[in-house]
Design a protein around this nucleic acid. Structure first.
Length: 182
DNA sequence: TGGCCGATATGCT
DNA sequence: GCATATCGGCCAA
């Protein structure tokens, strides 16, 4: 199956968030199935609002990498979405598939189930370079369509203090590789 | 130019 | 489930 192109990210953010679950994310020698994402649009918790300079690309691009630092030492990987408005999805967890030995080394020998069970963890496991921020997704990543249907669970986003009522976290039902249980 | 604070991870209860 | 370490970058002024 041919990799998905940038226009995969053109629809509404919630639609893209649902659509990317079960797809395989590939970066260098490593890959994993996307099992957890969050959607950010123009809501109060979105960087489009709270970091309006660096977050402006959420409104002007889709299919581009938005990589930002948090808590001084961690990085989070997003892809911008929605050709018609501000949007991005935060990649929060993967089910590791290829290059697992490499990921184990990068993650310091944590259990395999924890290799990519969090946004900063998967950045470390895949060795995502923050300098890729602003580049097209396809410059450094590949996205393979899902091969099997997935059941999706929806719930509130994690780690934010505003707009906590919006249920814009999407997870693959029953996955053992999530950052937290739904 | 400086002060603020977080889309985290971890470890303890 | 909750507290806290930790600190660079981001925005406002």
């Amino acid at each position: 199956m041919a990799p998905l192109g940038l226009d995969f990210f053109a629809p509404d953010t919630l639609e893209v968030a649902r659509g990317i679950l079960g797809c395989t994310l590939v970066h260098g020698p490593c890959s994993g199935i996307v099992v957890e994402v969050e959607a950010y649009k123009g809501d109060a918790a979105s960087h489009f609002v709270t970091r309006r300079h660096v977050g402006a690309m959420m409104g002007t691009t889709h299919g581009h990498l938005y990589i930002y630092p948090i808590y001084g030492m961690h990085w989070c990987l997003n892809v911008t979405t929605d050709a018609g408005g501000p949007g991005a999805i935060l990649l929060r967890a993967l089910e590791p598939r290829e290059g697992i030995d490499v990921m184990r080394r990068r993650r310091g020998g944590v259990p395999d189930v924890a290799l990519c069970s969090g946004p900063a963890k998967l950045v470390q496991a895949l060795a995502v370079d923050p300098a890729l921020n602003g580049r097209p997704f396809t410059d450094a990543f590949e996205l393979r369509p899902r091969e099997h249907a997935v059941e999706i669970v929806q719930g509130p986003r994690i780690g934010i203090t505003t707009a906590v009522d919006l249920p814009w976290r999407f997870t693959v039902k029953g996955s053992r590789f999530l950052s937290r249980k739904p």
